[in-house]
Structures are given as C-alpha cells and as structure tokens.
C-alpha cells in the first residue's frame, strides 16, 4: 500500500536548474535577525505550568492533598464540590481532588512509558530505514504500513489480550500503537535532511557516515522528533484514559483518570462533578502537550 504523499510535487520540465529569480519578501531589506523568543506567549506559558503542576502531582502527590485517594467514609459520599472537599466526593466518600492528584501517577507514567516505547522502537526503525534505504527501507516501511492499517485502539486491545489488563500493559499497548508514527517521521526527517545540500557538502568534505549522522542529521531531525514526542505524550494520555475507561487499565480502586470518569458515569444524572473534573484535567493536559508540540515545531530554524 503506497500512501499518496502530501508532496505531490509535479515534475517541472520547463523549470530551470539554474537561475534563482530573486524573491522579494517584504522583510528582505532588513538585516536577518535571530528569531525573538523573548515575547512571552500566555498560552504557551500556561501550557508549561499545567504540565509542570501535573508532573509535581506525579512526583509528590502527598504534598498537594491530605485526603486519602483510596478510602473514604460512607457518611461523606457524593458530596458536591465545596468545603473540605475541593472537587466533591464519590460514591464511597473518597475525595475527588485527591483521586485526581494521585491518579496522575498512573496516567502520566503510563503515557511516559508509552511514548518511550514508541520513541525508541519507532525512531530506531525510521533511522535505520531512512539511512540504509533500498530493500531494508522498503521492507521496514511495509511493516509500518501494516501497523498503520490496524486502528490504534484495536491494536492496543489485541496487545492487551496477550499481556493482560493493567497500567503497564495498557501503556505498552499504546506505545506499540505509536511506533508507526515515530518510524515514519524519523524516516522522513532523515530523508529530508539527507537530501539537503549541507549534508552532501559534509560528505563531500570527507565526512564519514557516522560523523555526518552525528553532526548534521541527528541535530537537524531532533526538533521534529521532539515535537512529535510532545504530541504523542498527549495522545498517549488520551489513549490510556480510554483504555482505563473501558476497564483494561489500572484495576479499581486505583485512581486513574479514565477509570474515574467510568466510575462517575453511573452518577452522571446526580453528581456531575465526578465525570466533569477528571475530564477537564485530561483535556488540559492534552491541550498543553499539543500547544508545546506546536511551539517546538515553530522554533525550527
């Protein structure tokens, strides 16, 4: 299955390989300047703050909440947000805020494991395919095509059937689902950078393959991979919470964002906070990751 590539550039029989007609960008007369990073973008700052806060929740949940995440008193069940319980309580009287804070351990580490699996396996596949080319490339990319042909969720479910339910297994399953994206990006980046004049010039001045890879190809591909990393982190948070919601992730009473929403679903008519708040946290984290990914892509020289 060859995918129609986005760059369906036509051949240009009449185009010269020579004269570069001057292009007149409005700013061209200006002395080239270093792109300014100094101008603060509020959305981006907020995104980093959100991810920072969630990271702290993961590292030291006890610092943010004194309530237990797994036990509560029946007397306090289904309290609306308010005094004593910032975001209310669930059907067993457990503090929802505390469960969200502690839930970040499962969700965030799960997403990190997933992204690590995708990054290591996928990038390696892509690098090798892009660097070696030829038959190796063709075979590897067909394998990636096959992985892409199975919808991510179904692929994850297939892996969960083998590995069994649980946080780590769900994370690995999600990671395998992202291998294809990393592989394709890494390969595309290697090919893009390899075709550039400066890489050829580096070979032309006697550079060995390893030296050129280290000096030019890796540094120039890193930005895009980093951007994908942030994007996939957000996607992994989503996917893990989906698996948790379906009941294939962490088993109850472990707090996990997807599972929290699944549990709160039974009380959706009466206790809106049980589903709304965990959901908002997921949205905030994923949105932040996407925003950061976007900013990394834009910083590229």
């Amino acid at each position: 299955m060859s995918h129609v590539t986005l760059t369906a550039a036509p051949e240009t029989p009449g185009a010269p390989d020579t004269a570069a007609p001057e292009t007149q960008a409005p700013d061209e007369a200006a002395v080239p300047r270093r792109p300014r990073i100094s101008r603060l973008q509020p959305g981006l700052v907020l995104s980093w703050l959100v991810l920072g806060l969630v990271a702290l929740w993961t590292i030291a949940p006890g610092f943010f909440t004194s309530h237990s995440a797994t036990s509560g008193t029946a007397r306090d069940k289904l309290l609306p947000p308010g005094d004593g319980h910032l975001l209310g309580t669930d059907e067993l009287g457990r503090d929802l805020y505390s469960r969200i804070v502690h839930g970040s351990i499962n969700s965030v580490t799960g997403a990190l494991v997933a992204v690590a699996v995708g990054l290591v396996v996928g990038t390696l596949l892509g690098l090798v395919a892009g660097s070696l080319g030829g038959v190796t490339d063709a075979v590897m990319m067909r394998i990636v095509d096959v992985l892409l042909s199975i919808p991510g969720l179904l692929l994850s479910l297939s892996i969960i059937i083998i590995l069994g339910f649980g946080t780590v297994n769900a994370a690995i399953a999600v990671g395998v689902g992202s291998v294809a994206s990393f592989a394709r990006l890494a390969r595309a980046e290697v090919l893009r950078v390899r075709r550039s004049d400066f890489v050829e010039a580096a070979f032309g001045s006697g550079g060995t393959f390893v030296a050129v890879l280290r000096r030019h190809i890796l540094p120039n591909s890193a930005g895009s991979v980093l951007a994908l990393l942030a994007l996939q982190f957000g996607a992994a948070i989503l996917a893990i919470s989906t698996l948790g919601f379906l009941g294939y992730g962490a088993p109850p009473p472990t707090p996990e964002w997807g599972l929290l929403i699944a549990e709160g679903r039974n009380y959706v008519a009466t206790s809106w906070w049980l589903t709304t708040y965990p959901g908002l946290v997921v949205v905030a984290v994923v949105l932040s990751a996407n925003r950061i990914s976007h900013s990394i892509r834009k910083v590229q020289p």
């Binding site: 020579t18 570069a20 400066f198 010039a201 001045s205 030296a211 000096r215 540094p219 120039n220 020289p301």
Partner: peptide, 30 residues
Amino acid sequence: KHVQLVYQNPFTSLDPRQTIARIIEEPLLN
C-alpha cells in the same frame, strides 16, 4: 581533500544549526 564543490544556494548548503566557525572547521575533523 583535493577537490571541493561550492553550491549554488548558500541558504541550503550551510547547516543552520552550526556556527560559522564550526562550519569552516568541520572538514578538518574528517
């Protein structure tokens, strides 16, 4: 070492991530 090529487009033939010193020096490292 004996033959070198200079490209048409100086915007693409220099690695955007390297400093000028590093660009000029690089062939010596090979």
